[in-house]
Simulated assay, not measured.
Amino acid sequence: MAAVPKQTTMAIKSYKNQAQMLVKNYLLADPFAPYTSILGGILACKVVSLGYFFSDLAMTLWQYPALGGIEYVIHHLLSGTAVAYSMFTGEAQLYTYMVLISEVTTPEIHLRWYLDTAGMKRSTAYLINGVVIFIGWLIARVLLFGYMFYHVYLHYDQVIKMHAFGFVLVFGVPSALGILNLMWFGKIIKGLAKTLAKRRSWTKELDSEN
């Protein structure tokens, strides 16, 4: 393994020292800067999430029911309301982010639609995407929701101190979304099983032809 030139090492140390000075003398010099950046990031995340829910809801209603049935409307309305409440009141921050984590499955769902529309149901990409959806859904929309209810149970003494509307949201929104997630998870399992069965039949057909 070739040794790193001394000049390069000194340059790296110089950049490192400059970065440390920047953080120490500017970013951390003001005690409000770290908190402002964190709060700003949280607010930006919620604003983006809120924009996504309502823009997607608008498209769903505009093309109803081509892009989704009433369950999608309910999902987006409840999610958007919960995010907006958390953003404007500061309550239920943790539970809001737990629910938002479940949206990590959204890109895979969209990819499935694109692959289906492109006529690639027989492709390996479609199968892999289906497996990823199954695993992601199980973790982010089933197990995580179960843990969230357990967390609410452990900290019920704090949850009960919330405003009445927030208290209702903490129990109502995850419960409704949890039911929808289980319904969709059942469809995902059936769809994945159907895809695997078809793939086995296609493989047998190819083997018989050869």
Score class of each variant (00 low, 15 high):
208 S>W: 15
182 L>R: 02
180 L>R: 01
205 E>G: 14
108 E>L: 13
177 L>Y: 02
187 K>W: 13
109 I>R: 02
132 V>H: 00
62 W>F: 13
43 L>M: 05
94 L>A: 11
113 W>C: 04
171 F>M: 13
165 F>R: 10
129 N>D: 08
3 A>E: 15
66 A>W: 03
181 N>H: 14
6 K>D: 13
175 S>D: 06
18 Q>M: 00
203 T>Y: 04
158 Q>E: 09
157 D>F: 02
168 V>Q: 05
45 C>Y: 10
200 R>A: 11
115 L>N: 05
14 S>C: 11
175 S>M: 11
79 S>H: 00
88 F>L: 14
135 I>V: 12
107 P>V: 02
170 V>G: 04
21 M>L: 13
105 T>Y: 03
202 W>F: 11
131 V>P: 10
87 M>V: 13
33 A>C: 11
188 I>S: 06
86 S>V: 04
125 A>R: 04
141 R>C: 03
169 L>S: 13
69 G>A: 08
170 V>M: 07
122 R>G: 14
39 L>R: 10
14 S>N: 15
114 Y>M: 12
19 A>K: 00
64 Y>K: 05
1 M>I: 06
97 Y>R: 09
210 N>S: 10
127 L>S: 09
164 A>P: 07
98 M>Q: 07
64 Y>A: 03
20 Q>Y: 14
205 E>A: 15
112 R>F: 14
165 F>N: 10
181 N>I: 12
105 T>E: 06
11 A>L: 15
164 A>H: 01
146 G>W: 04
15 Y>M: 15
199 R>E: 14
28 L>T: 09
143 L>W: 12
205 E>N: 14
152 V>I: 15
79 S>T: 08
78 L>D: 06
107 P>H: 03
179 I>W: 01
52 Y>A: 06
133 I>G: 06
34 P>H: 03
24 K>I: 00
155 H>E: 07
147 Y>D: 08
83 V>S: 02
66 A>G: 00
147 Y>W: 01
139 I>S: 14
12 I>C: 09
111 L>A: 07
184 W>C: 05
196 L>Y: 01
43 L>P: 03
153 Y>Q: 12
170 V>S: 03
39 L>A: 11
8 T>R: 07
165 F>G: 12
91 E>I: 05
194 K>L: 02
176 A>L: 06
194 K>I: 04
43 L>N: 09
11 A>P: 09
142 V>Q: 13
112 R>P: 01
9 T>W: 10
152 V>M: 14
79 S>W: 04
69 G>R: 10
